[in-house]
Design a protein around this nucleic acid. Structure first.
Lengths: 146, 146
DNA sequence: CGGCATCCTAACAGATACTG
DNA sequence: CAGTATCTGTTAGGATGCCG
């Protein structure tokens, strides 16, 4: 992990991916990469749905494809691969003759699930409020441009 | 106002390809949109950093630009707009003559912050484990192809 | 049936120049 | 100083077809 604390402000444009905050919230800055990385992992368009689909038990490839109609095969594969790579789901192929593969949540994946459920609860709780704000904002914007 | 990106952000319906799950996890299915919506809100490349920067107190536009050197003006504006639209940050302009604008976290934004901190904690806690899994996976993949 | 590889389009994101 | 508009490269993601 690239944790350059190096100072390169005035020495030209060191266009590092480092995203260093200079404010008092150094911890956020330091962890930002990890957080973002993991947030990217779960914040992606499909991950959550796949995790959710697996939360209720093991599932075969086709099951997932069926349970999440909106996903494309490509994205399902990509998502599963990524989750598998990160140790969040397990893949079990029974035999090669009539290919039948089962996916399941690992304990790590399960722990993520509960972490996300926290956020999910917040969403469920606040989404009306958020909507309201957005509507108000949009109305104002529309009025202003009218 | 033909801001395609702004509209893309505001038309949740456009990307709400419904994503219905037919499995036993209907609740996830029903909430998936909200969760994804909010996850999109915070999981985006910059939101977290901006929220983090604002967590320590109000900040002016330039402050944010300074605190997050890697962000472009465009993205900073877009991000702030979106957060403001959703009622997560407040924008206060003192006067039009020498433009000076302050951004601050609303209470809603603050509550999101704590919700995300939960997830952030999980990230910080598990990212080593995740890394390990990824390395193992990559090594196996490399071995297999060798 | 499960899983890649390919092509292609649309959304995303950076740099830059301009306005109030 | 605080934004907005435009032009452009980069990437995410859908459709499809082949191969185990």
């Amino acid at each position: 992990m690239s944790n350059h604390e190096g100072q390169a402000a005035s020495t030209g444009e060191a266009r590092a991916n480092v995203l260093r905050l200079s404010g008092p919230c150094e911890r956020w800055a330091r962890d930002a990469d990890f957080i973002r990385e993991t947030l990217d992992l779960v914040g992606d368009k499909w991950t959550m749905l796949v995790i959710g689909a697996l939360a209720s038990g093991d599932a075969r490839y086709s099951d997932l494809d069926t349970e999440i109609p909106a996903i494309s095969r490509r994205m399902l594969n990509l998502t599963l691969k990524r989750l598998q790579r990160s140790g969040l789901v397990d893949r079990t192929a029974c035999a090669e003759v009539p290919p039948c593969v089962e996916y399941s949540l690992t304990s790590l994946g399960g722990s993520l699930l509960s972490a996300v459920e926290h956020l999910a609860a917040w969403c469920a709780e606040q989404h009306t409020e958020i909507r309201r704000h957005q509507d108000t904002y949009d109305t104002n914007a529309a009025t202003r441009s009218a």
